[in-house]
Simulated scan of single mutants.
Amino acid sequence: MRSYVISHYGGVDGLRLRETDAAPAPATGQVLVRLRAASLNFRDLIILAGGYQQLCKPDLVPCSDGAGEVVAVGEGVQRVCVGDHVALTFHPHWIAGERPLGRTILGRGGSVDGTLSEYASVSEEELVKVPAHLSFEEAATLPCAALTAWSALCAQGVLLPGQRVLVQGSGGVSVFALQLAMLFGAEVVALSSSAERLEHLRLLGADHLIDYRVHEDWHRQVLDCTEGEGVDVTVEVGGGETIERSVQSTRIGGRISVVGLLSGSPALSEGFFYRGLSVNTIGVGSREQFEQMNRAIALHRLKPVIDRVFSFEQVPEAFTHLKQRKHVGKVVIRID
């Protein structure tokens, strides 16, 4: 069995391909999954760099997102059968309700081994059946980015048809937020930094496009295209450098869902309080929310946007591609 492990922290150079004996037969309540694809998130780059080193398990198999097929089940397993196509949940112990504190806080690919492996032996409680119309590569994009976007839109409040959503950039969470917002019948304002990526977002259905390199005070353009009111929900991925413009872009009484800190932790201004906004920090989501999202994806036959697929031998190149931040949608590893 082949797996990638982090031999030392500091970047992509710390990845090592390890070969071990065949995966053991699953114990009672356990399931053996033959992983067929994994997808990358920016948190994986942070982990490789050593950002959460003190919280990570030794010899960590990185990456939180993966999908494959069930090849063996242990005694007592009832939720899945051999042959089922499944994805692994981000939080192994978060089934429903509020997120349990103090348990595998970093989730898969941090506190517990991740998905850059040919096989994974996990509890049956850590699996979700994936929509039948998706390939393994497409299904592997769902556990973190898609569920984070879903939670940002509707976990902390109701998103109604005709309401407005602001998405930032063309990464995995932002693209999923655009696609899922359209399923709700929302009007979408999309930011990006190039005409090419904005065109991708237009083709995906964005109603309003803003180049934030051209319009540094992009909140003014957001207000212009929302009749001066602002959006109902902002999916905030930037962090410290963008939070104030997000505040100004969001209508009085609206919501800001913070899902990323690409430019550091945000500090809230007086404007946030004057506008009566609510801020929700999004920690991906529970298995129950994952299953709810999958029903919506299956009903509408939504197809995740994949920027590029790399082979299992090209994992370092895939991380380098992600680091360049020129992708639209998800970067995926095919595990043959």
Rank of each mutant, 00 (worst) to 15 (best):
L40G: 02
V80H: 02
R295P: 00
N280T: 12
V309T: 14
P161K: 14
Q248Y: 11
D59Y: 06
G76H: 10
G162H: 10
R301Q: 15
G264T: 09
P92D: 13
S39R: 07
G66V: 00
V309P: 01
L15A: 04
G114S: 11
P62M: 08
R287V: 09
Y274H: 09
S117A: 15
T226R: 11
R99Y: 11
G29R: 12
E187H: 13
P62K: 13
G102P: 10
L134H: 11
A38S: 13
E187C: 10
M1A: 09
A140I: 03
I210A: 05
G264K: 10
S269A: 10
L203V: 08
A72R: 15
L180A: 10
A146N: 01
G172Q: 02
L17H: 12
W218S: 05
S286M: 14
Y119V: 00
H8R: 14
G14N: 10
S194E: 03
T28F: 05
K57W: 06
H133I: 03
V130N: 04
D13L: 11
G10D: 12
V122F: 02
A67G: 05
Q179M: 05
L178D: 12
L134M: 07
V70C: 03
G107P: 13
I6T: 07
A37K: 00
R251N: 05
K326D: 00
A132N: 10
V279H: 02
L223W: 08
V70M: 04
L45A: 00
L88K: 05
G228Y: 14
C56G: 07
S192V: 02
E227S: 12
R334Q: 15
A139E: 14
T281N: 15
A139H: 03
F184C: 06
P24K: 09
S246D: 11
R103K: 12
A22G: 12
R36A: 12
T115R: 00
I256N: 08
D224E: 13
G240E: 14
F272S: 13
G283R: 15
R213W: 08
L142K: 02
H300T: 09
Q324R: 05
G238Y: 11
R251A: 08
T226H: 10
I6V: 12
P304H: 03
K303R: 14
D232P: 06
S117W: 06
S246W: 09
V237M: 09
A22D: 13
F319L: 00
I256W: 02
D232S: 12
T28A: 12
H93E: 15
R108T: 10
S311H: 11
T250A: 07
S246R: 12
G285F: 13
G102H: 11
E124W: 14
F319I: 02
G50W: 11
E317C: 00
H321S: 04
L262I: 15
V70N: 04
P62Q: 09
D307E: 04
K303N: 07
Q289D: 03
R287I: 08
R251C: 04
M182E: 10
V305Q: 06
I282R: 08
G253K: 14
A25F: 08
R287A: 01
L203S: 10
V31Q: 02
N294S: 08
D21Q: 13
G205W: 06
M1Y: 05
C144S: 15
S269D: 08
Y274P: 03
R275F: 04
S263R: 02
Y274C: 11
L116I: 02
S170F: 01
